[in-house]
Nucleic acid binder design. Structure first.
Length: 571
DNA sequence: GCCGTTTTCGGCCCGACTGTTTTCAGTCG
């Protein structure tokens, strides 16, 4: 049973306990366990087998027993019995923003509502508005949220969110007295998808800044607007929360709204034991009641005896313990990257010429660039056969003579066929500086076949890099079925570098894979898969993924010098 | 239900906004 399936069951239990009006701390205990399961860098089945469940944070005696029962028998008696207590479908109501456990239970009990369709009908008949303590406005809000829920997925890829936030920030640039405008939340932590955008700032006059924000031309609907914060929906249905504070509290404000929720809970719990209370306003001494303010996050952490913790690893795992010990790793940065090794040109399906790509890479300060156009099997991408590839190699040699301060490596992105063989003859592969292998077809194979196929390709002496290992596309295509643990172990054996594909619609490997691969000693490389010179800028998304996987510069292959890279390709 | 620099029992993060109230419950992040 997969971690995600196990997590889903315990999330359901937490929801049902909430509907039941159980002790909120018990509910939180289940939610903590769900969070841990979702972020486990290993299969929960393995932990059960090794009897190591109790090492997982938030898993104690009772939950460990339930996980074991679920994983070994495929069922959980406690869960079945709990479900039987409620009308079916009622937990679906909790998905609607604005409906919490209390409201959901009342809708179920008093109006016999079991689905979103029934709820919509009840609103239309005026039944919801007539319930005590609800009313017209509440009913209308619920109706709107149901419609929004139907319209689109709740989360959007980080690439899109980044564009939207850039636009909004540009619109607020002229507001007088507004400073420190920064996106926080999951965007700042570089999660691969974003639910809503959190924007922070400080201002001489908070109400003035709020007024400017809700008046932006992008704003389609104002959900809430108070004296220090506002929530709006912009074009595309994306929700943006805006929070303003006085200048001298920016450190605590940014820290609080960057999250994650679990990181903040852990941090506040720890502070509480030190006799301190944390909030977006600063740190209050519980004895004296005195509030201390912080203009920077670093100072805010320092006051608690902690090293600065980069946003990307604030996920409630080991980061606070590491900050306490002063051993937070120095994470890889964009400036560490010396080149991009997965790049297409107009020789195959890219938009720009060889020289244009080389110039763009040089302008980014790269020391080297790897050209990797498709192999002939990618007919649709105008892949290169032997003759055209040899001509391209010649062109790259000539370009290297001409262009200064950057070196171009000749490579290819060769297809891995369904049987694991490569779509290019051995001797041709041998003429190249490096070889990237990738799956582009036959993606519905069984996990066993796909795993065997990929590992066979990695075992080829010519293959240096495995590109986008799971082939997923955000938000459309699910990853292929493949045993990643086996791929990681094979990669360590063959010395193949696994790609962190930085294209926002891929981000493949993803953060949790990167975390595990790094632990096992896999060599990783961040590439953009650029199909035009502008795409080279996707590198920052790949850096985000690598940082979320706790990677330092030395874990990433394309931070090394040109000479070291050439040596790596030869070995 | 979990967990330990106050603890094996008794705590468990903190504040803002809305709607329907008339002092607050519910929800959200």
């Amino acid at each position: 049973m997969k971690n995600a399936e196990v997590a889903k069951v315990f999330q359901d239990i937490a929801d049902l306990l909430e509907l039941k009006g159980e002790n909120p701390f018990k509910i939180r205990a289940y939610q903590r366990a769900v969070f841990s399961l979702e972020h486990l860098p290993q299969e929960v089945e393995e932990l059960v087998g090794e009897g190591r469940l109790r090492e997982v944070p938030g898993v104690g005696e009772a939950i460990a027993k339930k996980i074991t029962e679920l994983v070994t028998t495929g069922r959980l008696k406690y869960y079945e019995e709990l479900k039987a207590e409620f009308p079916p479908g009622i937990s679906a109501l909790l998905e609607v923003p604005g409906i919490g456990p209390k409201t959901a239970m009342r809708l179920g009990k008093e109006l016999d509502i079991k689905s979103l369709d029934e709820l919509e009908a009840a609103i239309a008949e005026g039944k919801v508005a007539s319930l005590p303590r609800l009313g017209e406005k509440t009913a209308e809000n619920i109706r709107r949220h149901i419609q929004a829920l139907r319209r689109k997925d709740r989360r959007i890829p980080i690439g899109e969110a980044m564009l939207a936030v850039d636009e909004i920030m540009a619109g607020l640039r002229g507001v007088p007295g507004l400073k420190n405008l920064t996106p926080a939340g999951s965007l700042r932590r570089f999660r691969e998808t974003i639910g809503d955008i959190d924007l922070m700032g400080t201002a001489d006059s908070a109400p003035g800044a709020i007024k400017a924000f809700v008046g932006l031309p992008q704003v389609r609907e104002v959900l809430a607007s108070g004296t220090t914060k506002a929530s709006v929906v912009v074009a595309g249905g994306l929700q943006v929360d805006f929070r303003i504070m006085e200048h001298d509290s920016f450190g605590s404000l940014l820290q609080y709204f960057t999250g994650s929720k679990q990181h903040n809970i852990n941090l506040r719990d720890r502070a509480h034991r030190m006799g301190l209370k944390l909030s977006e306003y600063g740190i209050t001494d519980l004895k004296t009641g005195e509030l201390e303010k912080f203009t920077t996050e670093a100072a805010f952490y320092r006051r608690q005896g902690l090293e600065f913790i980069p946003p990307e690893i604030r996920e409630g795992q080991q980061e606070i313990a590491r900050a306490e010990a002063g051993t937070v790793p120095e994470l890889v940065e964009l400036a560490d990257i010396k080149g991009d090794l997965h790049v297409h040109t107009d020789w195959s399906d890219g938009r720009d010429s060889l020289e244009a790509m080389a110039q763009a890479a040089k302008a980014r300060g790269y020391h080297y660039l790897g050209i990797s156009d498709h192999s002939a099997g990618r007919g649709i991408a105008h892949g290169l056969d032997g003759e055209r590839l040899r001509r391209q190699i010649q062109s790259i040699r000539e370009l290297n003579q001409k262009i200064k301060d950057i070196h171009i490596f000749c490579g290819t992105e060769v297809d891995i066929r369904a049987d694991g063989s490569l779509d290019m003859p051995e001797e041709l592969l041998g003429e190249l500086d490096f070889v990237i292998a990738a799956v582009h077809s036959g993606m519905n194979q069984s996990q066993a076949r796909m795993t065997e196929r990929i590992i066979k390709a990695m075992e080829s002496p010519h293959v240096d890099i495995l590109a986008h290992p799971t082939c997923r596309l955000l938000p459309a295509r699910e990853p292929v079925a493949v045993d990643m643990e086996a791929v990681f172990r094979a990669a360590v054996g063959t010395g193949t570098a696994l790609e962190i594909n930085a294209m926002p619609s891929r981000l493949d490997l993803k953060d949790t894979h990167v975390y595990r691969a790094r632990e096992l000693g896999v060599r990783l490389i961040i590439n953009t898969d650029a199909h035009s010179s502008g795409h080279l800028g996707f590198m920052r998304f790949g850096i985000g993924v690598a940082r979320r996987g706790w990677c330092r510069a030395e874990d990433i292959l394309n931070t090394v010098s040109r000479a070291e890279l050439a040596a790596y390709f030869k070995h």
